[in-house]
Design a protein around this nucleic acid. Structure first.
Length: 625
RNA sequence: GCCGACGUAGCUCAGCUGGUAGAGCACUUCACUCGUAAUGAAGGGGUCCCCGGUUCGAGUCCGGGCGUCGGCUCCA
């Protein structure tokens, strides 16, 4: 047989040869360093036979930064972790241990709970295994053999995996530790040069909170110790631009025990907030939305009608009201439904686009809050479009284009996800076929790349979500566009059609920033606090060189009043005041001393760029920022 | 809600095996009036998250609560 190498040359091999055989045929050094076979984008264990004509690439320890090469290294390291845990904590049951982005984890059921101090001990044991050296052996056995093997060991999770597995069962063994695993794995442990256990967490078996909670140990591994150091350094730098840290440093907002998950916005944070509000208002006006305001509190009957009571009652804030209680709104939909239903509507009124940037409250489960990215006081840039069936597509297009406009404005690239019918959906499958189809169609006709999240839709309809990633790599839902055929019917909404018959409108729920709080959180991280000129809380700082220049500096400030200008006349050295302006990430600093006049201003830009400009030139320049 | 950890001055953090608190930055005052990332000196500032317990004595140990952080789950 023959295989094709990356340079298109062909290699003759005996039938049934493996990737490792191919490596040996090329050279002993390659065979020694080989870690993985990559073939047409998928990876294959070195021990697996190749096929005639297969295109192969042999990855080695020199591909230390290749994602696939790292993947196999980390997968093997996860097995070392399991081996170490089983030795140190007899009676521990092992579940699953896959590589993930930036590392790996392994889930265990420990006989006794362990704390974080255990990680050091386990890591030491892994390093001992590495010093000793481990070699992986791969074997295929029948499902029945595998079931018996793991049942004998009391490994109930492995038994369950075998029982639900498809195809032949493969085992990988290193030392005295055998694991059920598809692979691929390293030949042996010598390429693993750096291991670090990074965290401990609870995680439900098979991701279902009704199942037993296991203990998950996270770790990472590299082909080179320097890569681990670089990774840790990178994490440190990411933390430096964490919105929670920058929010305090830049005096934008703070969070307090007095109101958990409900940010206090400081004057500088409000500048950004209001800039987003102005943007929203301006664009909504252009795009035919009308602004409305609906109540914050509603009787329970309203929430029962909307369907939220059944699903989210425990997550709502309730306020006593005589003998009854009122629910503080966690979303605007019912208010907009009631508003629509308050009068007679004709097809001529549609599409009707109600916009409201409103304060919402959600009593989130403990342990779910996260800085600005998950709050209890949420402000959505919400809108509901009431449409006829044949207006749906055009309206969805409008939302998608609007969203693209906004995200482009900030240079942010959101990922689109289509979420489909959940288990606890309202309505029939036929209705969902229609609404899901409409969203899918709109995405495809706009040529937007998207992924599908099966079962992740809202209970009343499917949705297109825009997702962004925070500095620590966590994905957050930002904007959302949802198509609803349920709630209008539940509220008995109708419009009079051309045919003089009553029809139920469809509703598109849409928030494009998503939540203002979250959007600003992501913005802070996106810009690392260095906001573009138009968003910067302080746009210009004037620094008088000496006492004698203070008055002139203030006069200059007055002349630039159309901008957010401050004069820093503190009794500090010029160097100190420049440093502070940099730390506050102010885009433009103007120094004013003996040499300066309106004809010649000393401009310093954030980051250090210097220039001399007249006041008129400066204005012209600022207009380009 | 669950697993693990943390909570000390405005911020970042130190405080060993229990003996009622410290640093840097920030702030205030004074001197200096300064040319592109930290001038010097002095001073003020703390219910050590809250409640309870153990103890002669608790920031430190134990229990409960609240909050925050890393995850899991959830997210209208």
């Amino acid at each position: 047989m023959k295989v094709v190498l990356p340079d298109s040359s062909e290699l003759e091999l005996p039938d049934g040869s493996t990737g490792l055989d191919a490596a040996r045929a090329i050279g002993p050094k390659l065979a020694e360093q080989a870690v993985l076979v990559r073939s047409n984008g998928s990876v294959q264990d070195l021990r697996m036979p190749l096929e005639d004509g297969q295109e192969i690439q042999i990855l080695t320890t020199r591909d230390a930064h290749d994602p696939d090469a790292l993947y196999v290294l980390r997968h093997s390291t996860a097995h070392l972790l399991a081996e170490a845990v089983r030795r140190l904590y007899p009676g521990t049951k092992i579940a699953i241990g896959p590589p993930i982005e930036n590392g790996f984890y392994y889930d265990f059921e420990f006989p006794e709970p362990i704390g974080e101090e255990a990680l050091e001990r386990i890591e030491a044991e892994m390093n001992r295994e590495l010093a000793e050296g481990r070699t992986w052996n791969r074997e295929e056995i029948s499902a029945e053999q595998a079931r018996r093997l793991f049942a004998d060991q009391g490994e109930e999770y492995k038994v369950e995996l075998v029982e639900t597995a498809e195809g032949p069962i493969t085992l990988y063994t290193q030392g005295d530790f055998t694991d059920l695993c598809r692979g691929p794995h390293l030949q042996d442990s010598t390429p693993i040069k750096a291991v670090k256990l990074t965290g401990l967490a609870g995680a439900y078996w098979r991701g279902d909170e009704h199942n037993r909670q296991l203990t998950r140990i996270y770790g990472t591994a590299f082909y080179d110790r320097a890569d681990l150091d670089a990774y840790l350094e990178q994490l440190e730098q990411a933390r430096a631009r964490d919105h929670r840290r920058l929010g305090v440093q830049l005096d934008l907002f703070h969070l307090s025990d007095h109101a958990p998950g409900m940010p206090f916005w400081h004057p500088k944070g409000m500048v950004i907030w209001n800039a987003l509000e102005d943007l929203r208002r301006r664009e909504n006006l252009k795009r035919g939305y009308v602004e409305v305001k609906t109540p914050l509190l509603y009787d329970v009957a309203t929430w029962v009608t909307s369907g939220h009571w059944e699903k989210f009652k425990d997550d709502m804030f309730l306020v006593p009201y005589g003998e009854r209680e009122l629910g503080l709104k966690p979303m605007n939909c019912p208010g907009h439904m009631l508003l629509f239903g308050s009068g007679l509507r004709s097809y001529r009124d549609l599409p009707l686009r109600y916009a409201e940037s409103s304060t919402l409250h959600r009593n989130e489960r403990a342990g779910t809050l996260h800085g600005l990215l998950r709050v209890q006081h949420v402000t959505q840039d919400d809108a509901h479009m009431f449409v006829t069936p044949d207006q749906i597509e055009e309206e969805i297009f409008g939302c998608l284009d609007y969203a693209s406009y906004l995200y482009d404005l900030f240079g942010m690239e959101a990922r689109f996800e289509l979420s489909t019918r959940p288990d606890n959906k309202l309505g029939t499958d036929e209705e969902w076929d229609f609404t899901e189809g409409a969203l899918r169609n709109a995405l495809e006709r706009r040529g937007i790349d998207y992924t599908v999240n099966e079962g992740d839709g809202a209970f009343y309809g499917p949705k297109i979500d825009l997702h962004m990633t925070d500095v620590l790599g966590r994905s957050w839902q930002m904007g959302t566009i949802q198509l609803d055929s349920q709630m209008p019917a539940r509220f008995g909404l109708t419009y009079m059609g051309e045919d003089n018959q009553e029809h139920t409108p469809y509703v598109i729920h849409r928030a494009l920033f998503g939540s203002l709080e979250r959007f600003i959180g992501i913005l802070i991280e996106h810009y690392a606090g260095a906001f573009p000129f138009w968003l910067a809380p302080v746009q210009i700082r004037v620094i008088p060189i000496g006492e004698a220049h203070r008055e002139a500096a203030h006069e200059l400030g007055e002349k630039l009043r159309e901008y957010r200008v401050e004069v820093d006349e503190r009794n500090e050295t010029v160097g100190k005041r420049i440093r502070d302006a940099e730390l506050e990430k102010i885009p433009v600093t103007i120094l004013f001393g003996e040499k300066e006049s309106d004809e010649a201003l000393a401009i310093r830009e954030r980051g250090g760029g210097q220039s001399t400009r007249s006041l008129a030139d400066l204005r012209a320049y600022l207009a380009t920022l």
